[in-house]
Amino acid sequence: MPKVSEQYRKDRRRQIVSAVLNCFARKGIKATSINDIIVESGLSAGAIYGHFSNKDELVLFVVSEVFELISEQSELNQAQAEVQHPAQLIRSLVDHLRMEIGSPALLLQIWGEAVTEPKVRELFTSVYGVLISHFAASASSWFQHLGLDRAAADQRATELMPLLIGIGQGYILQTTLIEGFDEEGYLKSFEQLLSA
């Protein structure tokens, strides 16, 4: 029997993850069955179970992939040479998620899972720490750009973090649940709030 290459395994996992994301978007995490994923992916049960031993393991892997995307984007935001308004950090993150996973609505489901699933909560807590760190560094740069010294900018950025994360979560929640939600108006009002 020919040996399966690492690239082949990665491609199959990517195919499975794509199928899982489609199923989660259509049916939700709890209602999605392994059979749904088999049908969506076009793979056999053996191919799925060759990579993941059960649905819980698969869900955890997909959640970790989504959180990895969030971490990567927050690193990119921080590394940008151009100083960004904190509202732009939220816009960049949500735009990146849309490009990679479709609707950011999946995050609402993941947050729900984090309430009752310790392993998902652990992943969420880890990513939350990364977001806080990167967003705080970017926000500090923005406040320094406005004329604050480094210490004052760091303090202001640290104070802002719970609000910034909450604004981001509110943006994702309302974008997902409210028909005709004015995304630009929401972010502009946040910009005005910080400028007041």
Rank of each mutant, 00 (worst) to 15 (best):
F67Q: 07
L76V: 14
L107F: 11
E100A: 15
Q73L: 04
S41R: 00
Y49C: 02
V62I: 07
S44P: 04
A79S: 13
D11H: 12
S64T: 11
A31H: 13
H85C: 07
S71L: 10
L43C: 00
L60I: 07
E40G: 04
L131F: 12
R91M: 07
E75Y: 15
A31L: 12
H134I: 04
F52I: 00
V59Y: 07
S44G: 05
H96P: 00
L89S: 03
E40A: 09
A114V: 08
K55S: 01
A139M: 06
S33R: 11
I37W: 04
L108C: 04
G46K: 04
C23T: 05
F24A: 01
Q84R: 10
S53A: 10
L60T: 08
K27I: 03
A87M: 04
E57A: 12
E100R: 15
N54Q: 05
I101F: 03
I16A: 04
Y49R: 04
A136D: 07
F24Y: 12
H96G: 09
L93K: 13
A114I: 08
E113N: 10
R26V: 04
S33V: 05
N77V: 05
S41K: 01
K119W: 11
A81S: 13
D56F: 11
H134K: 15
F135P: 01
G129V: 02
G28K: 10
S71E: 15
F124K: 08
E40H: 06
D36C: 02
L89G: 01
I70S: 05
A114K: 10
V66L: 06
W111Y: 15
Y128A: 06
